[in-house]
């Protein structure tokens, strides 16, 4: 690192350069760590990353600074994490989109471009209908969908090809129907979709239950099922697809911490151990429960497997929905 001292030139004295030791660091972390978030400040991913960062800071004794790197629908931030120096001083929160974007030909990046550290959260999609809808349970809805003509039912929840669209496509596929048997109405996120559901504009919204929660609690919508292996203790009344339909289909929007590829093993192990403590800690639990976010843990190997599974499932769903390119 070149260091130019210009103290003489800068007579104002407002500036002093400081030399940074670049010797091999005996202990990690030796300086503040950057936590890159590929999504904007204020969203759910940002909030999760910020609580994880503040708890990691306590755990490891160095500042963990959250930096939002937005742009390119997540591509910019994800590639910033992958292309950082693998020294443990830049890590990031990667999201389910990393298992989707490469299928669409949006980026070369995929799950294998990272050193996985820990899976922190996963929210499965739910199946929500308007409170005045005639379908009291998921079975009635599923039968009605099977009996309907293609395109008669309209569903929403996110943009075309987004995670909740794929959830619907996958569920229809598991029932032996075409991916577009229920027509997808793209929306700008879950909140407008839930609003349109309440206004009677669409029949089904397949966003996660925490996203739908306020409208459900206001008595304007009902959640009929979640597409997960087990019920969510936060919303214990909502059954899984497997319980009611015998369809063992589950996907979810997950968030995990990862580092650039080739992170030295001791650093990776230290980070995973710290993240496990964070995940088990009361503060993280309180935060996740308050937000209604699903708590799912995976260590480095578990996270890697989880990503591989997601990648396959979503790849198949995207292929059936005609979204795979290149």
């Amino acid at each position: 690192m070149a260091i130019i001292t210009r103290r003489g030139a800068l007579a104002a004295g407002a500036l002093t350069t400081i030399a940074r030791p670049t010797l091999a660091q005996p202990r990690y972390p030796a300086r503040p760590v950057q936590v890159i978030v590929p999504w904007g400040a204020g969203g759910g991913t940002d909030a999760t990353a910020r609580i994880v960062a503040s708890l990691l800071e306590k755990e490891m004794g160095q500042p963990f600074n959250v930096v939002n790197r937005t742009g390119g629908s997540g591509v910019v931030g994800h590639s910033a994490i992958a292309s950082a120096a693998p020294d443990g001083h830049t890590i990031g929160m990667i999201t389910v989109e990393i298992c989707m974007m490469h299928w669409q030909g949006l980026t070369e990046l995929k799950r294998t471009s990272y050193t996985p550290l820990a899976l922190m959260n996963e929210d499965p999609p739910g199946v929500q209908v308007n409170a005045s809808s005639p379908y009291r349970d998921i079975k009635a809805l599923a039968d009605a969908i099977k009996a309907s003509r293609p395109g008669q039912f309209k569903a929403s929840g996110t943009g075309q090809g987004g995670i909740w669209h794929l959830a619907l496509a996958g569920w229809l596929g598991a029932m032996g129907l075409a991916a577009d048997h229920v027509r997808w109405v793209p929306s700008n996120g879950a909140a407008p979709a839930m609003q349109d559901l309440a206004a009677g504009g669409v029949d089904i919204v397949t966003c996660s239950v925490p996203e739908a929660r306020a409208i459900i609690e206001a008595g304007r919508a009902r959640s009929l099922a979640i597409m997960a292996p087990a019920r969510n203790p936060q919303f214990a009344a909502v059954p899984t697809l497997n319980e009611t339909l015998g369809i063992n289909y589950s996907v979810g929007a997950w968030r995990g911490i990862a580092a650039p590829l080739n992170l030295p093993a001791p650093i990776a192990q230290a980070l995973t151990a710290a993240l496990q403590k964070v995940w088990n800690g009361q503060e993280f639990k309180d935060f996740m429960n308050a937000r209604g976010f699903g708590m799912v843990w995976g260590d480095a190997a578990g996270f890697a497997q989880h990503m591989e599974r997601t990648d396959t499932t979503l790849g198949a769903a995207m292929r059936s929905a005609g979204l795979v390119r290149g």
């Binding site: 070149a2 260091i3 130019i4 210009r6 500036l15 002093t16 350069t17 400081i18 940074r20 950057q34 600074n65 930096v67």
Partner: peptide, 10 residues
Amino acid sequence: PLPEGLLAAP
């Protein structure tokens, strides 16, 4: 995170 480059602020 403004870049540091050749000259870092104190």
